[in-house]
Structure formats: structure tokens, C-alpha cells
Nucleic acid binder design. Structure first.
Lengths: 127, 127
DNA sequence: CATAGGGTTTCCACCAACTGGAAGGTCAAG
DNA sequence: CTTGACCTTCCAGTTGGTGGAAACCCTATG
């Protein structure tokens, strides 16, 4: 399989597949005579795994760890859970921040008449 | 006022104040004989304004626009409200995404025993 | 067999919004 | 006069890619 086949199979852009190879996250199986990267089902599965992990917001380094655990049959679910819990806590933290931002900005936007006069509670708040 | 005084007054790192000057967001009032940036109350107020806007997640470019409106006495509150509404919608969108991520990951983490055995619903989901 | 089109390679640059650090000039105190 | 705390510029690195150029490769068609 060439890189574009792999990228389609994994639902990732070609550039991204190449990038993952560059950073040593998912290496190609090998190279053709012409120097083309070749991919087999094993690598496709890893690429899909990484795509899903990235969709959860795991960093490249975390994906590397998760991928390591995925491939290690003597992993412990505790190790996996620990990484996932960390990410979950980050998400919760971000949610709290966004909620607070949302509430404040929402109040300001509601209080702003949005007409052609200059007085504006949003500007007042920022100043 | 030297840059470190300004940075304290605006509650921003020195590096950031210098960066804002570099990108033309908040220029220093001038330079001393030795070439030191000087800041007056006007610039401090702008720096504080930008810090607050950044805390809301407005981009540098949006801060530039807001700062322009802040300084323009014939602004319309409609212009301000439009920028703020755009940002508010981005926040809402991000909240929806995070909520979905949270729910999914939370379910997986709950379902994972986190013991020393290898079977793990998180890995299963990603694979 | 030449050539046109696609696919592939490497490498370099860019995005946002800083941050860290090096090398060197400045200033005030002791 | 020296020491230490400032300040300056400039370059590099961060995250996770993306865009593009120059050049090589492969296949199909005329």
C-alpha cells in the first residue's frame, strides 16, 4: 500500500501520515524500490488508533504512550486509565474555564445594545 | 516608566509586553536615551485592555480591532457586539465539542477497571 | 517510444502567541 | 570600580500539522 492508500484507509491526510512517520509515531512498514513508503494493515490499524486518540485530544506524546500500551499485551488497564483520567481532568478543567468565559461574555453581549451609539458595556468591562 | 514597571502595572510578563510592541498591538510611548522603551498611563491602559480581551480568548487580531474601537469615540456598539458575538459563538461551539468528548471519555474511564490486567475498554474503543 | 498526468520524495517555510536564552549595553548603589 | 539588576536585539523552540517547490517515479495513451 502506498501512502495515499494508507491515508484513505485511515481517514487521515497524506501530509499527516508522513508527519506521524517523521516524528516516529507510526513508521511505515518499509520502502519500495523507488523509495515510496509502504503500509500494511498493521500500520493502518495504528494510524486509525492514533486518529481516534487525537480526536479525544490526546497529545502526540500521549498517543505514543497509548500506542505502546496498545501493542503491549502485558499492559495493565491501570496504566491506560491513568492517561485517560489525566486527559479527562484536563477536559473538565477546560470546561470550567469555558463556562466561566461563556457566562461573563454572554452577560456582556446581552447588555450591549448593538446600535450605532458608542457606549458599550463590553468596552467598559475591558477598559 | 520602564518596561518592567509597565509589565507589573498591566499584570503581563515583560516578554509579552515587548511582543505586543513588536507586533504593533501596543507600541511603547517612546524610547529613553539608552534605547529603553518607555510607557505612560495611556499605554498601561491599553495593555490592561488587551490582557482582559486575551483572557476572553480574543485573538491578537481581534484585540487589535477591539483596541481600535476602544480608542475611537465615534465607534458603534454594534461593531463591538459583532466581534464579541463571534467569540461567544466560538466558545459555545467549543463547549459542545468538549461536552461530547467529556461524555464519551468519561464513559470509557468509568468502564475501565484500572487494575493490573490488560483488557481495557479504552484501548478497545481506540483500536 | 515519447510524453502527460498523477503520485511520491525531501526540504523549507509558515501558522498563534508567546517563551527561553544568549550576547551585550545601561544604570544605580556601595 | 565593580556588582547586580535592568534593558536591548536576535534566534530558536513550542504544538501539530499544512502549503508549496523542485525533482523523481509510474502508468497509460497516442
Amino acid at each position: 500500500m502506498n501512502i495515499s492508500q494508507a491515508s484513505k484507509a485511515a481517514a487521515l491526510p497524506v501530509k499527516t501520515v508522513r508527519y506521524y512517520a517523521d516524528v516516529g509515531l507510526v513508521a511505515a512498514q518499509g520502502r519500495s524500490d523507488a523509495g515510496y513508503r509502504t503500509y500494511s494493515d498493521t500500520e493502518i490499524r495504528k494510524l486509525i488508533f492514533v486518529r481516534r486518540a487525537r480526536e479525544f485530544g490526546f497529545s502526540i506524546e500521549e498517543c505514543r504512550e497509548l500506542l505502546g500500551l496498545y501493542q503491549k499485551d502485558d499492559r495493565t488497564s491501570a496504566d491506560v486509565k491513568q492517561i485517560a483520567t489525566k486527559r479527562l481532568n484536563e477536559i473538565k478543567q477546560k470546561q470550567r474555564e469555558l463556562q466561566s468565559l461563556h457566562d461573563d461574555l454572554s452577560n456582556l453581549v446581552s447588555a450591549c445594545r448593538g446600535d450605532n451609539r458608542p457606549d458599550c458595556p463590553i468596552i467598559d468591562y475591558l477598559a
